[in-house]
Computed example of a mutant assay.
Amino acid sequence: MLRGERFNRADRVIKVGFWINLVLMVMKLAAGYYGNSEAVFADGLESACDFIGIGLTIIALKVGRKPFDADHPYGHGKVESLSAIFVSLVIGGTGAWILYAAVETMVIGNYQAPSLIAVGAAAITIVIKEALYRYSVKVGDTLKSPALLAIAKDHRKDAITSVATLVGVTGAWFGFRIMDPLAAGLTSFFIFHIGYQTFRTSAHELMDGLPEMEMVAAIADLARSVKGVESVHDIRARHSGQFVIVDLQLGMDPQMTVKESHDIATEVKRRIFDTFANVGDVMIHINPSDEPHDDLIRL
């Protein structure tokens, strides 16, 4: 997949989520206000907070698609992970706000009887947000985009929130009025969990944490399969937004010419690019295979 096509697909997912989220936000705020449901109204305010996360993601994708330059020789991809960190903080802040509002209502004991419109708004949100989650996570997994995956988790968070909201507002509609703020409070803990997962994954990528071991092992096996490569060692990889940057060392016959070893290394790199669409760059170091090699490193 071409670089521009990757970012265009990500843009489409973000824009679909943006406009649908706008419609849901207006619907839930109106249904919560006129339908006397604190849980549904809080759900609408949560959707408003999501605009911060979506806006940050749009900016991150715009910056992240810029090619490498003199100041950023590895490109600008890490801005996606940085954006995902901000999204996780928005998710966590939303959970804290919902928990505070629910506890305050239960302490005061000012319960209201919600109307059927609030029940319908919660049910519609569940269906739409779950569909958005599946759409976003499918494209996010394909592109290996941390920003898209963070947005997908945010959609799943909204779906979970709305399930609890539906249970609470339905119970309150049948007369158990405490269930409305209680559902909102319990939902906040699911939100905290999703925010923590998003933060942990993004922080791992920002700290150059190793990608999936299956991918690293597959790259090493592919390099070994190239004629002329006698060993592969000290393979490292790290995320840069939607791409992975790979470093590896190849052991080759010490009698080879520089041109021969260079051609083999180029073939290794070409096969890696052909097989792994999310690999952005491969840096190869060549060592003589007939003697042990201790890499010089200060890290």
Score class of each variant (00 low, 15 high):
Asp154Ile: 00
His155Arg: 01
Arg156Pro: 06
Arg156Ile: 01
Lys157Ile: 08
Lys157Met: 13
Lys157Pro: 03
Asp158Leu: 11
Ile160Leu: 10
Ile160Gln: 02
Thr161Met: 05
Thr165Arg: 02
Val167His: 03
Val167Ala: 06
Gly168His: 01
Val169Leu: 02
Phe176Gly: 02
Arg177Gln: 10
Arg177Phe: 06
Met179Asp: 05
Met179Leu: 15
Asp180Ile: 07
Pro181Glu: 07
Pro181Cys: 09
Pro181Ser: 11
Pro181Val: 11
Ala184Thr: 10
Gly185Cys: 09
Leu186Ser: 09
Ser188Glu: 09
Ser188His: 13
Phe189Ile: 15
Phe190Cys: 14
Phe192Val: 10
His193Val: 14
Phe199Arg: 11
Thr201Lys: 13
Ala203Gln: 01
His204Ile: 02
Met207Asp: 04
Asp208Val: 04
Asp208Thr: 00
Gly209Glu: 06
Leu210Phe: 00
Pro211Tyr: 12
Glu212Tyr: 00
Met213Lys: 13
Glu214Thr: 13
Glu214Lys: 14
Glu214Arg: 14
Met215Trp: 00
Val216Phe: 08
Ala218Tyr: 01
Ala223Met: 13
Ala223Leu: 11
Val226Phe: 05
Lys227Leu: 11
Lys227Cys: 03
Val229Trp: 10
Glu230Asn: 10
Ser231Ala: 12
Val232Gln: 04
Asp234Leu: 09
Asp234Ala: 11
Arg238Tyr: 01
His239Asp: 12
Ser240Tyr: 05
Gly241Pro: 05
Gln242Arg: 12
Gln242Ile: 15
Val244Arg: 03
Leu248Glu: 00
Leu248Phe: 04
Leu250Pro: 11
Leu250Arg: 03
Gly251Phe: 14
Met252Arg: 02
Met252Leu: 06
Asp253Cys: 07
Asp253Lys: 03
Met256His: 08
